[in-house]
Nucleic acid binder design. Structure first.
Lengths: 219, 219
DNA sequence: GGACACTTGTGAACCCGTGCACAAAGTTGC
DNA sequence: GCAACTTTGTGCACGGGTTCACAAGTGTCC
């Protein structure tokens, strides 16, 4: 269930504030969902609540962690150490949630050897070896679009069974491999779509107008 | 509709390969969706196809662009110029799709004045002024979680009506403001969840094992 | 010009996630 | 121990999105 991480984050916040038990109503509010939905989600894991009282924060945290697989460490390889790969490698949120950035790989030989986030960047040729030696099961693709399919194929062939794809490309993987996609431009385009509907493009600019304003403000 | 950018990307790929017309079946395949779904989506825009033939690639591209609002430029402010903000500012995919990074803002006075992606980083105090002067309607939040709500409130108060939030926090905005969220850790956690189900945690490691392997390979 | 092959556009069934509402269960106070 | 209150867990209905299947329209070939 895709909302479990959300609940976990809300619970962690409550735990830090010293809250011992929480009702579905309260927890739902801090996670931004409907309370009935939350109860239905939690009941799917088992009956971990107490009627008349609510849920014990620490206990529920542990149950969700176990369900998600957070009680184990997962090794991750990041392929493509451009701007985005860089940011991902340095992103602190991964390590604290059981994800270990085990390897960084780039196709550019000039990048190989460079140190990023305390790890040496390896050349793409070593990809398969690294996956096997480090027992990596999750791959993050931050390459240009044209390389994405090839990279995914190689990851899958080497044994990776979960891929998070940031490249703006449609990639196909065989059954049994999980593929999730995050497309930054698409997210903005969806916003722009709604924006246009809202105020009849009152805030949209021509390229010339935008450039002019930028000139005036930034000099 | 959230799939229009997807179709647009597929169409652009076809256009580059010199394809003039395409059937719903083919286009659906390259976008990774069902052909009936695609036809229904496109029929929502109007009857732009020809029975017995298919859709004219260039014409359809233009129609979708117009629908999404890509024929206009949108000014964007990025708040929080850490690793992620840096990567977003340098990400080439925005400019080519009608999004103009108009301003970069950070709360750290030491960052102000620094040049990132050809733009001077401004201090957070200037946020409201920049939004008005540059007529910014879209905000990207790449701050730490604890600052996210405050930043969003200020963006909305200054007139921003669409927000893309990368901070791992639940933020509330008033009605009429569009808010989309991208949570990198959550994406990985969902993958880990499925991963755990698949192979009974065969590939999961304890933190010790992972550290040991890392030592052997990188050390 | 007519038969045939192809493709769109859409009505209708279906599926799944969501939210309401309530019974079951537990707690508190007396 | 009993009544009143609180909260969970879930049956059920609703609605939006997805898919099937097919009629209607278009081009092609002879």
């Amino acid at each position: 269930m895709a909302r479990l991480p959300l609940y976990l984050r809300a619970l962690t916040g409550l735990a830090e504030r010293g809250v011992a038990t929480v009702s579905s109503e309260e927890l739902a509010a801090s996670a931004g969902v409907n309370s009935a939905k939350l109860r239905k989600d939690l009941s799917y894991l088992g009956s971990y609540g107490t009627r008349g009282v609510g849920y014990e924060v620490d206990f529920l945290r542990h149950q969700i962690s176990r369900e998600i697989g957070l009680t184990q460490d997962w090794s991750v390889v990041i392929v493509g150490i451009g701007n985005l790969g860089h940011a991902l490698a340095n992103y602190g949120g991964f390590a604290s949630r059981g994800f270990r950035i085990a390897a960084l790989v780039d196709a550019d030989p000039k990048r190989a050897g460079e140190e990023v986030a305390g790890l040496q960047v390896r050349h793409a040729d070593e990809l398969e070896d690294l996956i096997q030696q480090l027992r990596i099961s999750i791959g993050v693709v931050a390459t240009p679009a044209r390389a994405a399919q090839t990279v995914c194929d190689r990851l899958v062939a080497a044994g990776v069974t979960s891929i998070l794809n940031f490249a703006p490309a449609i990639v196909q993987v065989r059954d049994g491999v999980d593929l999730r996609k995050v497309d930054l431009s698409t997210e903005l385009q969806i916003l722009a779509y709604h924006e246009q509907r809202k105020n009849g493009a009152a805030l949209a600019l021509t390229a010339e107008q935008a450039a002019e304003l930028a000139e005036a403000v930034n000099g």
